[in-house]
Every structure is written in structure tokens, then in C-alpha cells.
């Protein structure tokens, strides 16, 4: 177990290092000089040069990379070119929306997918199974921005249960914040739940055919008991993999939903800063997302080891 942990941690650190180098180099080769962009079409070359020095853009590539990384390690992500505010505070504000939204959507995904997947798997080939499969087909096929607009039409405009968009901030009460995130979370969760339901179903169906499930029945467990006590945990490995991928997607990929619900989240921040050549922000947010993805994978790896004792020795 110790060896497994050290290996996972080592791979985590290495991935972060490689990712930071790749992100930095990619941003480096993107055309467009932020200084020139900020000063507009008619700026004089010496003004641009002065601004470049001010922004710290004239060091060597290596110096700037080291400066960027050491800064991040101390919590200093630089200053946004356009807004002239520290990137760290900008990101933190957005993260307080995007992270809860992603967790909320993931929670809904799991809460829908687990029962639906188990239900379908235990009734394989029967009407209930076909019903669930049909529903997941629809869930995957519906574009989520369209579904989001339908949700707004029905629950915000007609029934007036929720507001149509915007975010009141957590300081006005946790429940208020949660309420504002509910419709976006549902819109995000629906296709993910459909995918996860299918994974859960097929993984569990594989497990149900295993010899040890027959042993469990021969012990005297009912079908339901056998599924919950022996089937589920064995079916979990592929499901955990997908959950990890989905969380990463939900954190960064919610941009369309953020747009529809006018939520100031991370996705919109990235989009805005790219169009404004605010490369410091882009770099930092992308790095942060990479960090989140790698951490998620690390947690998924730990979950594997908890679920399956065989992985603790191997790996």
C-alpha cells in the first residue's frame, strides 16, 4: 500500500511538472503580443516596449517559466493584463462557483446513475432494462444548452421556482446559492448521468455473470442481496474511472451552461481571457484545471485501491 501511494504521488508530481512546461510552451507559441493588444492599433513601438518590460515579457523563456512556476508555488499567479487585478483573486472568485457547481452536478449524476444502472442490470433483457436504456439514449442525444433553455422556460419563467440565471453569491446564504446552481447542475448532470448509467449497467452485468455471484447465491443470499453485497463493489472500477473523467469535464467544460445561466464561472473566464489575449490568466486557469484533473485522477487511483485489494500490491 505504501509503495502504491508513493508511486501514485511520484506520478502526480511528474505529471504536474510536464503539464506546466507544456502549457507554458503552448502559450509561448500562440501568436499575438499582449502588450500590443492592450495598447491598440496605433500604439508607438517604444510604448509597447515599455509595457513589455513592465509586464515582465522581455526575459528569456526559461527565466519567465521559472518565475511563473515559483510564483504559483507561493500563491502568486501574476496580474491580469486587462483587469490589472491579481489573477489569484479572479480565479478564486470563479472557483467558488465552478467547483460547487461541478460537485453538485456530479452528485446528481451519481444519484441518478447508480440506482438506474443497478435497476437495469438486475432486469437485463426485460421491460425495465429497455426503458432505462431508452432513457439514457435520449439523455445522451439531447444537447445540454437546449435542455438548459427548456429548464429555464419551465422552472424559471413558467413556474417561477428558480431564477433564470445569475448567481447571488454565497454570502446571502448557502441555500440561496445552492438554489441558483440547481438548474445549471441538472442541465450538466443529465447527459453525464445517462453515460454513467450505461457504464454502471454494463459493468454490473459483467460482474453478475461471475462465479462468485453464484457462490453468493449458493450461500443463501437473495438476488438483491448478492448484488448489493458482492456485485456492486466489483463493478465499481470502470464506474470510478468514468466519474473521474466526468468531474474534470464538469469543472472546465461547463462553459456553455455558464453562458446560458449567466454564471461567472471558470469556463467563461478562460473564454474571455483568450479573446482578450490575457495570457497570464489563461496560463493560470489552464494550469489550475490541469491540477484539478491530475488530483482527481490521483483520488480515483486511491479509490481503486480502496475498492480492490489486488491493486494495492500490484500497480
Amino acid at each position: 500500500m505504501i509503495s502504491y501511494l508513493t508511486k501514485r504521488l511520484a506520478s502526480l508530481v511528474l505529471s504536474l511538472f510536464v503539464a506546466s512546461a507544456v502549457i507554458f510552451l503552448v502559450i509561448e507559441v500562440i501568436p499575438g503580443d499582449p502588450a500590443a493588444y492592450m495598447l491598440g492599433m496605433n500604439a508607438r513601438p517604444d510604448t509597447i516596449a515599455a509595457l513589455r518590460t513592465e509586464l515582465g515579457l522581455d526575459g528569456s523563456v526559461f527565466e519567465r517559466y521559472v518565475g511563473w512556476v515559483t510564483g504559483m508555488l507561493q500563491g502568486d499567479f501574476g496580474v491580469s493584463y486587462t483587469y490589472r487585478t491579481p489573477v489569484a483573486t479572479m480565479v478564486a472568485d470563479r472557483l467558488w462557483i465552478s467547483l460547487p457547481l461541478a460537485l453538485y452536478a456530479l452528485f446528481l449524476t451519481v444519484v441518478i446513475a447508480f440506482p438506474a444502472g443497478i435497476f437495469a442490470a438486475s432486469r437485463r433483457g426485460q421491460a425495465g432494462d429497455y426503458g432505462v436504456i431508452g432513457a439514457t439514449q435520449i439523455g445522451i442525444a439531447i444537447p445540454n444548452f437546449w435542455f438548459a433553455m427548456i429548464l429555464i422556460l419551465v422552472f424559471a419563467i413558467n413556474m417561477r421556482w428558480f431564477s433564470a440565471g445569475g448567481f447571488p453569491g454565497w454570502e446571502n446564504g448557502f441555500l440561496q446559492g445552492l438554489k441558483a446552481l440547481t438548474l445549471p447542475a441538472v442541465a450538466l448532470a443529465l447527459p453525464q448521468a445517462a453515460i454513467l448509467t450505461r457504464v454502471m449497467r454494463s459493468s454490473l452485468i459483467d460482474v453478475l455473470g461471475e462465479d462468485f455471484m453464484r457462490t453468493a447465491r449458493a450461500k443463501g443470499l437473495s438476488t438483491q442481496q448478492a448484488i448489493f453485497r458482492h456485485g456492486l463493489r466489483n463493478a465499481l472500477i470502470p464506474v470510478l474511472t468514468i466519474i473521474g473523467l466526468q468531474f474534470a469535464f464538469l469543472l472546465a467544460g461547463g462553459i456553455i451552461i455558464e453562458q446560458v445561466f449567466a454564471l461567472p464561472g471558470l469556463g467563461r473566464l478562460v473564454f474571455q481571457s483568450i479573446s482578450q489575449r490575457d495570457l497570464v490568466v489563461v496560463e493560470s486557469v489552464v494550469m489550475l484545471l490541469v491540477f484539478a484533473v491530475i488530483m482527481t485522477n490521483f483520488l480515483v487511483d486511491l479509490a481503486y485501491a480502496l475498492v480492490d485489494p489486488r491493486l494495492r500490491v500490484r500497480a
Partner: peptide, 24 residues
């Protein structure tokens, strides 16, 4: 019947490598 299985009738299978739950 569930009370009979494993209570009054026990059963052993052919393939011991897969007959046990690997995660318990």
C-alpha cells in the same frame, strides 16, 4: 429457498480461482 441454500444444502463449484469475491 434462500434459507435452504447455504443452510441445509451447501454447494461447491469447479473453479476455485473465481468462486470467491476478490474484494472481500
Amino acid at each position: 429457498m434462500c434459507r435452504v441454500r447455504g443452510g441445509r444444502i451447501g454447494m461447491i463449484f469447479q473453479e476455485p480461482m473465481t468462486a470467491l469475491n476478490p474484494v472481500q
